[in-house]
Computed example of a mutant assay.
Amino acid sequence: MKKIILDCDPGHDDAIAILLAAGSPDVELLGITTVAGNHTIDNVTRNALSVCAAYGIEVPVARGAAWPLVGPQVLAKEVHGETGLDGPPLPEAAFDLDERHAVDFIIDTVMAHEPGTVTLVPVGPFTNIALALRKEPRIAERVESVVVMGGSFTRGNVTPTSEFNVYADPEAAEVVFRAPWNVTMVGLDLTHQALATRELQDRVRAVGGPISEFVLGVWEWVATRFESLQQIEAPVVHDACCVAAVIDPTVFTVEKADVRVELTGTWTRGMTVANFESAPGKNHFGSATEQGDYRTDVAMTLDWPRFADLITDALQHLTRVRKGQS
Rank of each mutant, 00 (worst) to 15 (best):
V123I: 06
V222L: 14
R46M: 02
L133V: 10
D293F: 12
F307N: 04
G87L: 09
R203V: 01
G71H: 12
V123N: 14
T154E: 06
N157G: 11
G124C: 12
R155N: 12
T224Y: 07
D309T: 06
A76T: 04
A21P: 07
A308T: 00
V143I: 14
N275E: 14
L29S: 05
V121N: 09
T224Q: 15
F252G: 01
V123A: 12
W67F: 14
L200T: 03
A274P: 08
F252C: 15
T197G: 02
V158L: 08
P89T: 01
D189I: 02
R138D: 15
M1K: 12
D14R: 01
G87K: 04
D202S: 11
V59D: 02
W67H: 12
A65R: 05
R142L: 14
I57G: 03
I106H: 04
E136P: 13
A194W: 03
A194I: 00
I41T: 08
I139D: 07
A172W: 01
K3H: 06
A279M: 11
I232E: 12
E290L: 14
L30Q: 04
R142T: 07
E233S: 14
V215F: 10
E213R: 15
T119E: 01
H238Q: 15
L29H: 02
E58Y: 10
G116Y: 00
Q230G: 09
G217H: 02
E213A: 15
E163G: 13
V44T: 08
L97I: 02
L200N: 10
G150R: 06
G324H: 10
G11C: 07
V236M: 05
L200H: 05
V166H: 08
N275Y: 13
F105D: 01
A54T: 03
N128R: 07
T159E: 04
E174I: 04
I247E: 04
R322Q: 14
V158Q: 02
V254E: 10
D293E: 11
E82G: 09
S326G: 15
T83N: 04
F276T: 03
V121A: 09
T159P: 12
A132T: 01
L20E: 00
A206E: 08
E114P: 13
D239H: 15
A48R: 03
D293I: 12
E141V: 00
L310A: 00
A172V: 01
T224K: 12
V70L: 13
A244K: 00
